[in-house]
């Protein structure tokens, strides 16, 4: 899984959805967040999910990551059908096979940076692989900061700690929910650079929800969502092309 990708090899699917639907509320108050989405997320790729507010991009990610129950359809991570798992198995799967990076509040305030990074491993009762841990730490450039608490770190540093945490357990897939949403542009670039490198150098699979075209420009592939449907997709995106596409989507959505 950590081998560098061979150019031209057939894409392996890290996660996929089949007719994934999510409906909130009942009757008149019913809101369809996702209306039967089937999408495949390729392994060793950096995928961005974009769309206007209310397009269902966050819901898609939450369901794909097993954080939220689906109304209809199936979700697979690797060969495992998430939608068929019991709560306990789902928890274990999240712990062992999925990494998370959230927009804010990524770290446990009472734990040091190092303890936060090792949290999923120690929850599972596993020991970190020292060489891998060192490599991750050096890549995110946090070696000097390992003993600090989150409150002693800048926003960018906190997000890099979160990235390291997601990486250190070598999950099959990392879901990132607006990871740069709360950061200034310089910190954003650092974090995105790091995510990009994780995919290129370590062959990590990352799915990122974002509304920032610049962030999307770091990815291999962009999925565009509108009104709970995947409406378009773009390979090797650039910030300008994404911006243009988004403007079109927004006007189509009447925003």
């Amino acid at each position: 899984m950590t081998m560098p990708i061979t150019p031209g090899a057939p894409a392996v699917v890290a996660a996929r959805t089949e007719g994934l639907a999510k409906v909130y509320g009942r009757g008149d108050a019913q809101v369809v967040a996702l209306g039967g989405v089937s999408v495949a997320l390729n392994a060793h790729e950096f995928t961005a999910i974009m769309g206007p507010s209310g397009s269902g991009k966050s819901t898609l990610m939450h369901c794909a990551a097993g954080l939220d129950a689906v109304t209809e359809g199936k979700v697979f991570v690797g060969d495992v059908e998430l939608t068929a798992l019991k709560e306990k198995e789902l928890t274990a799967l999240r712990r062992d096979k999925i990494g998370f990076i959230f927009q804010a509040f990524n770290l446990i305030p009472t734990l040091s940076a190092e303890e936060n990074i090792l949290l999923p491993l120690s929850i599972a009762g596993r020991k970190p692989e020292q060489a891998w841990f060192d490599r991750v730490i050096d890549t995110v450039g946090l070696r000097e900061r390992l003993g600090h608490r989150p409150s002693e770190l800048s926003g960018g540093q906190q997000q890099r700690v979160a990235c390291a945490r997601a990486l250190v357990s070598r999950p099959e897939i990392i879901f990132a929910d607006e990871p740069t949403g709360n950061l200034d542009s310089r910190s954003s670039r650092e974090v995105l650079d790091f995510l990009r490198r994780s995919v290129t150098e370590f062959g990590q699979t990352i799915v990122m929800v974002t509304h920032d075209p610049v962030a999307a420009g770091f990815t291999d592939r962009v999925l565009f969502l509108a009104d709970g449907q995947v409406v378009d997709e773009m390979r090797n995106p650039s910030a300008d092309r994404v911006l243009e596409r988004m403007a079109h989507l927004d006007s189509a959505a009447g925003v």
Partner: peptide, 16 residues
């Protein structure tokens, strides 16, 4: 609440 949610997201079981 948020902290507990985060812990659960990164794999902390209910029992834990």
């Amino acid at each position: 609440t948020r902290e507990i949610g985060l812990l659960r997201a990164v794999g902390l079981g209910r029992g834990q």
